[in-house]
Amino acid sequence: MLKIKNLQASINKKLILKGLNLNIKEGELHAIMGPNGSGKSTLANVLSGKSGYEISGELKFQGENLKEISVEERARKGIFLAFQYPLEIPGVNTNNFLKTSLNSVRKAKGEKELDALAFLKLVKEKSSELGIDEKILSRQLNVGFSGGEKKKNEILQMKILNPNFSILDETDSGLDIDALKIIAQGVNTSRDKKKSFLVITHYQRLLDYIKPDFVHVLSEGRIVKTGCSELAQELEKTGYQKLN
């Protein structure tokens, strides 16, 4: 699904990713861990196509060269990023935003756009699956949401858009245990043979609830170690320091 080869990315002439290699196959869930400043969020931004980065190396998604494709096109092809800091957009109703988003993705796929009724039904179903209070959906997008509500809203968007490849950028940061479980449940119920995930996290805690196929350690812009889920537990004990 995703093939990254010798990826280098710099912003404002500062090199952040220094030759990163990563292969994610259909149905796999990869976790990326690493200390602050190791390039985790940069990787998420580069994959989603955020502007401002200078990029070299190979970046392929479902066989296509991602570098040529705009942010919205990538989204329509099924790349989803759960933001570390979801943006507030005053005056924009959350439901409305979700519907616009879903319909532009559906339209691009050649599917029929959902009308208001069908959309509300879908939202009801997905939010109750996740145990999210629907009331937040009638509020302005992320405005006045608590940290937990914002993150839950990201996962709800993921469930509704139903992407092939989801990136979770430190979605677990700053969450209490209940919210964490909701996030994990959102991911676990979405997993199937076709869908892939890249879960970026600081802590092993989230991986108690989401079982990754692979764990990578990112340090100074490179993946320095790869293992199975036990690697995360090991890191929790020893810290990142030892790896360098």
Binding site: S48, V71, E72, L102
Partner: peptide, 12 residues
């Protein structure tokens, strides 16, 4: 960043 967020959700 607001624009980027919307773009990431498929809006042009």
């Amino acid at each position: 960043d607001q624009l980027y967020y919307c773009n990431q959700r498929g809006l042009n």
